[in-house]
Amino acid sequence: GTALAIGGTVFILFFAAGAKISHLGGLGAVGVVGIIAAILYEPYRMRRLLAFSDPWSDPLNSGYHIIQSLYAIGSGGLFGVGLGRSREKFLYLPEPHTDFIFAILAEELGFIGTATVLILFFLFAWRGLRVAIAAPDIYGSLLAAGLTTMIILQALMNIAVVTASMPVTGIPLPFISFGGSALIFTMAGVGVVLNISRYVSMK
């Protein structure tokens, strides 16, 4: 998961720096081939991929994780079961406080809560990219774009995994998942973006 987030950030930075679309397309094709080769090389990666495509084919083993995540999301409904009242976090859903915290959030706060989180990430991306576009120099622009992209890609990948939109990868949800080291580096990145924004006229 981290490798994909870093690769996606580098791809966006190349685009922001003015790389040609044809070059990026070739780079993306090489990346896709590399991912396919990596999946085929290790049998457990293939099992993860198959579990993602049909988790109910092995509900007690490879598909268990994602099935419990979907149960948590479905149980939340529109308004959720109430803050702190999740049932899935009690020995049903593995890693409910880190990689799968979004599923617990959906169960406890429902669609309203998850939509609010998505809107907040969208606003963060919008403001971060506005800072990058209006930065007074190339270095500041690329730095703001890279930091914003890295945080948003992690969030999108985490949410995609939890909602069974992509195979399971171990990546936390920025600002929300338990873990001090991840929060420190995320907040440090936000601090750098805020520092760049001091030299930008934001209207």
Rank of each mutant, 00 (worst) to 15 (best):
L4A: 15
A5P: 02
I6M: 11
G7K: 00
A16M: 10
A17F: 02
G18V: 03
K20D: 15
I21K: 10
I21M: 12
I21A: 14
S22T: 14
S22F: 10
G26N: 12
G26I: 13
V30G: 02
V30K: 03
G31Y: 02
V33E: 00
A38N: 10
E42F: 15
L50R: 11
S53K: 13
D54F: 09
P59D: 11
N61P: 00
S62T: 14
H65K: 11
I66A: 04
I66C: 00
Q68C: 06
S69K: 05
A72E: 03
G74I: 05
G74H: 04
G77E: 03
L78N: 02
L78Y: 09
F79W: 13
E88P: 01
F90L: 14
Y92H: 15
Y92R: 14
F100Y: 11
F100A: 07
A103H: 01
A103C: 10
I104A: 07
E107K: 07
E108A: 11
L109K: 08
G110C: 08
I112S: 11
V117I: 15
I119K: 05
F122W: 14
L123I: 13
R130W: 10
A135G: 05
A135H: 01
P136K: 13
I138E: 14
I138V: 14
G140K: 06
S141G: 13
A144K: 02
A144E: 02
T148I: 02
A155V: 12
A155C: 13
I159E: 09
V168H: 04
V168M: 01
T169M: 05
G170P: 04
L173E: 06
L173R: 07
P174H: 01
G180Q: 07
G180E: 05
A182S: 15
A182N: 15
G189S: 14
I196A: 10
Y199A: 15
V200I: 08
V200E: 05
